[in-house]
Design a binder for these strands. Structure first.
Length: 585
RNA sequence: CGGGGUGUAGCGCAGCCUGGUAGCGCACCGCGUUUGGGACGCGGUGGUCGGCGGUUCAAAUCCGCCCACCCCGACCA
């Protein structure tokens, strides 16, 4: 490609609203342009990189038996009503009517369509297992898109779907993806960790997220260096401290003026926060059969801990949680800031499993300015549900080995889910086993967002001047610069390099050397060739890798071979890192 | 949806407080000089000042409403 003809120019300054490096550089280098909030065009160079990423995904998914197909972006709503998600999913799914007035949806994901296809195509256990996938547009009307391509509303995703006769088959395909995903990220030059994650709206029994660790990430992860336990904070377990071994003391109401926060209360009574109980009011949306109901949740954790909303939602099987309004709290006789589960009616009381083990806590008295001392579970109150609902924090003990865990921020670049039979059962996607008995097909789903992956690779591989693309993701292999006195020779090389199967970006513009060098650094192709009067005088063509500051001179007749050799070497370096990983449940 | 912020040329910004001819840098076009790390000179092109309404002789500027975009929280690849 000749740069003089390239659609999309480089910018000296990034738009003011771009904050993180990948966003700024992708815009400056001319890879992406914004159309609206969370809506981007991929310019020719950005598209080439995405195309290469998607090619890697194809190779790896094909290698584990995937068959590529293509499913629509617009779905009749009936299908989503059949599985119930039409009713479960909120505004994140965009809906519209066609000209006949039928409900339609824009696809957020494709479990429904796959299950629908499966119920038509699969009749027998002899047809299983099966793996299908596509690379397709998804629309998710995210309330808050941000950070360039990291989080957008329209994006393309490689999503694969496994179909099996039983759990064992699913497990096999799940493990195959577990490895294939590591291969994909590694081949794109991105280091990731797999963490256990919440199954969320997808339903199912087991899920992992692939996380690229970066401060720009939105998820918090808990990582144990000692035993390699890794989990998203949303579900991360931890070994809870052993409470003091004390005899239950007498319940006592004491005045505690102006102590609406745990901090103030602990200071006032001169006790550690761990000797208090913290209350939180949430309202849960629950599905009871067809009906949707709301229920006030009274959650209790020890004062030194925080309630984990994901764990809480899972404990009460809520589809959604929101903070309770003030009126809802007073309606059950509780007083915000001085609330306690003692003597409450009408709320679903959920206490963290550490609470029943912790004697003599300080809890609210449901009276402004008063608390109870020596509150003991069982003797003074009972909960409807006892479960782990506390949030894991930096330094908390690993649930597996007890070592202190640390936290890190991460971007979710992919995930894998064991779906089970949720969709197949709902849609009647069944098969007959050897004895002629009917069973629902066991499904799994596996996704990687290609634009987000590009953004993460961009985030990982750059310096202050621009990108340093891994050769597997770079839009071109070679950046060929023609400077004064080298135009003719460069033009000839441009043809020869392409003839040799190399992807070349040829800077044939009438710009000053400084502009060309800076643009080359910004765009960040792996290999730079400079042809000029000076280089020719020094014996040929100057060769420099973007990743190194060393320059060398290559004879004109050796350039093709040398560039081919280096490209091969760069690829080999990346592929060396593609190794078998052990599966961490 | 809550909190904060910004909308003036393709990008970055000034002008607004105190109403009166819309400006600067970069980019872009023409001519000339220059040519290995974001060159220089001369001459140019380009703006419904986010939108609608109001106040006023007069609005980028004052007032109201709306919209868009960004950042921080509740959601996700």
């Amino acid at each position: 490609m000749k740069m003089s003809r390239m659609f999309g120019t480089t910018l000296r300054q990034a738009p003011a609203d771009a904050e993180i490096a990948s966003h700024q550089l992708l815009v400056r280098a001319g890879f992406i342009r914004q159309l609206g909030a969370g809506i981007y065009s991929l310019m020719p160079m950005g598209w080439r990189s995405v195309d290469k990423i998607e090619d890697v995904m194809r190779q790896e998914i094909n290698a584990i038996g995937g068959q590529e197909l293509y499913m629509p972006v617009v779905h009749p709503a009936d299908l989503w009503k059949e599985t119930g998600r039409w009713f479960q999913i909120g505004d994140e799914m965009s809906r519209f009517h066609d000209r006949k007035g039928h409900d339609m949806v824009l696809a957020m994901t494709h479990e429904e369509v796959v299950a629908d296809l499966a119920r038509r195509e699969i009749q027998s256990y002899k047809q299983l297992p099966m793996l299908v996938y596509h690379i397709q547009t998804k629309w998710r009307d995210d309330p808050r898109p941000r950070a360039g391509l990291i989080r957008v509303r329209e994006f393309t995703m490689k999503d694969s779907y496994s179909l099996d006769a039983d759990e064992a088959g699913l497990d096999k395909q799940y493990r195959a993806h577990y490895q294939a995903y590591f291969n994909i990220f590694q081949r794109c030059g991105l280091s990731v960790v797999a963490v256990k994650s919440d199954v969320g709206m997808m339903g199912g029994s087991l899920a992992h997220e692939y996380m690229y660790l970066t401060a720009a990430g939105e998820d918090t992860l808990l990582l144990c260096d000692k035993c390699s336990y890794r989990a998203n904070r949303q579900i991360a377990l931890f070994r809870k401290p052993k409470p003091d071994d004390e005899k239950a003391a007498k319940l006592e109401k004491v005045p505690t003026p102006n102590t609406a926060t745990i901090e103030d209360l602990a200071n006032f009574l001169k006790i550690p926060k761990s000797k208090t109980a913290k209350a939180l009011f949430m309202v849960a949306k629950l599905n009871e059969g067809e009906k949707e109901t709301e229920k006030l949740i009274f959650a209790v954790v020890r004062g030194d801990m925080e309630v984990n909303e994901t764990k809480l939602a899972n404990a009460v099987k809520a589809k959604e949680l929101r903070p309770a309004h003030a009126e809802e709290i007073t309606a059950i006789g509780a007083v915000a800031g001085y609330a306690s589960p003692i003597g409450l009616k009408g709320a679903l009381v959920v206490v963290d499993d550490l609470i029943p083990l912790s004697p003599n806590l300080v809890a609210g008295a449901n009276e402004k300015g008063h608390h109870f001392l020596n509150v003991n579970y069982d003797r003074d109150y009972r909960a409807d549900i006892v479960a782990d609902i506390a949030t894991a924090e930096e330094g908390y003990a690993c649930p597996r080995c007890g070592a202190p865990m640390h936290t890190s921020r991460g971007v979710e670049v992919g995930n894998i889910f064991k779906l089970g039979t949720r969709y197949s059962a709902a849609l009647g996607a069944n098969y007959l086993d050897e004895s002629g008995n009917e069973h629902p097909i066991v499904m799994g789903s596996y996704g990687i967002g290609s634009g987000r992956l590009l953004a993460c690779v961009a985030e990982e591989h750059h310096d202050e001047k621009g990108f340093i693309w891994p050769v597997s993701v770079a839009p071109y292999d070679v950046h060929l610069l023609a400077l004064r006195g080298g135009q003719e020779q460069a033009e000839a090389l441009y043809g020869q390099l392409r003839q040799a199967g190399l992807a070349v970006l040829f800077d044939d513009r009438e710009e000053s050397p400084g502009v060309k060098f800076n643009d080359a650094d910004l765009i960040g192709l792996p290999i730079r060739l400079t042809v000029s009067e000076r280089s020719l005088k020094e014996g040929g063509v100057e060769l420099k890798l973007r990743s190194s500051s060393e320059k060398s001179s290559v004879k004109v007749e050796d350039v093709i071979k040398e560039v081919g050799r280096i490209k091969g070497q760069l690829l080999a370096e990346i592929n060396e890192k593609v190794v078998a990983v052990s599966f961490e449940e």
